[in-house]
Design a protein around this nucleic acid. Structure first.
Lengths: 211, 211
DNA sequence: GTCTATAGATTGATAGAC
DNA sequence: GTCTATCAATCTATAGAC
């Protein structure tokens, strides 16, 4: 088996197990058994369990953040061209749509999105920082862009609402792997496209509420 | 030391550690050392670590849910009296305000709210069910009440938006124990009263957005 | 009810042969 | 790079003296 095969199998297995069972609740033995690789290969290729988590998150989040940043910058540039304020809905869409499109691109991607959705509220600082270090730059870009789009909102209020938006998103991202609750009559859950549209509608309304 | 002292010390310590370090990342040794009780006393009083978690959640969540249910029923009764539809904002307030008031009542309460905020996205089914079993009844009450308040929303959309609301709330609840992110200019975070008002405004706007 | 002592299983990590 | 074997530490849970 080539090196890249083994590394990829470990990354894929870790992504699945960290998302579905949790980081601390996943043992290297469970992981290497699922990935059909030797126990020692994790430490050989990644150094430690912590570094493996870092690698799992970087592999997917760096490309995703690049796409989100490009889309946000496109919205800003187009607004500048016609000397208008950027559109808040277009900015939210630039941030949310790539996330949800990526989520539907493969089962592994769905696990990954669930994993980073939960990272926001992860109690263990090592785990949380692993995600936050990669997420902060794009959040700052989004904050600055939304501040241009909605100059009437004070920075403190905008920051608070951006926190609310992250909370809403992270919950939707976590819902990937398990239905969270249903009422007794169990209305059919929305399909993925309708869910994204409803999500954008919801966070936009909350973001634009009068101060 | 009396029995109730020991039980309470264990519950208080478990609440703090489960919230701040996570359930799987908290060992009984760390817990009994923090609570200044003997290692064996946890299994004597609670039977197992899982049952301890159950006890930690029940102690606070049952009274909190009773208050939330009473307030929701009061809103419904008052609307019935004047033959009007119940007010969606009043219903959200009945659900959210007791949560946030309780959160500010003591450091232990703040830890607890952080703990149950995270339970919604907990990957471990045992841990998640421990919370969900106690939370489902009140969520069904809230769903039914909001369905009366906003009959124009289809059940599927209302359910989806209630999920969004739970996501927003759970993130705010988790923010208890650690600031999640700040932008470079770091606007002062809102004080707790302003935060609750902003939260209600945000989720109400999202809930009432045109379908 | 509280304690010591320990069983019995599992963990992350590594040394060393191939 | 991959493997076996194992270390040292940690875990939950319990038996049994007091």
């Amino acid at each position: 088996m080539s090196q890249s095969d083994t590394k990829t199998r470990i990354l894929d297995g870790a992504e699945q197990l960290f998302a579905r069972e949790g980081f601390h609740n996943t043992s290297l033995r469970t992981l290497t058994s699922l990935a059909s690789v030797n126990l020692a290969s994790v430490n050989y290729h990644f150094g430690s369990k912590d570094s493996l988590l870092q690698a799992v998150i970087e592999r997917r989040l760096l490309p995703l953040n690049r796409i989100r940043q490009e889309k946000i910058e496109t919205v800003l540039a187009e607004a500048q061209e016609i000397s208008a304020l950027p559109d808040a809905e277009a900015l939210l869409r630039a941030f949310i749509e790539p996330t949800m499109e990526f989520r539907n691109s493969s089962p592994g991607a769905r696990d990954f999105i669930s994993l980073i959705g939960r990272s926001l509220s992860e109690p263990d600082e090592t785990v949380r920082n692993c995600f936050m270090d990669l997420a902060l730059p794009i959040l700052q870009v989004l904050f600055a862009a939304l501040h241009q789009a909605l100059p009437q909102l004070s920075p403190a209020i905008l920051m608070t609402r951006l926190q609310f938006i992250m909370g809403t998103m992270s919950h939707v991202m976590c819902m990937s792997s398990h239905a969270v609750f249903n009422n007794p009559e169990r209305p059919q859950p929305l399909d993925d496209n309708a869910l994204v549209e409803q999500l954008i509608k919801y966070v936009l309304a909350g973001l634009e509420a009068p101060e």
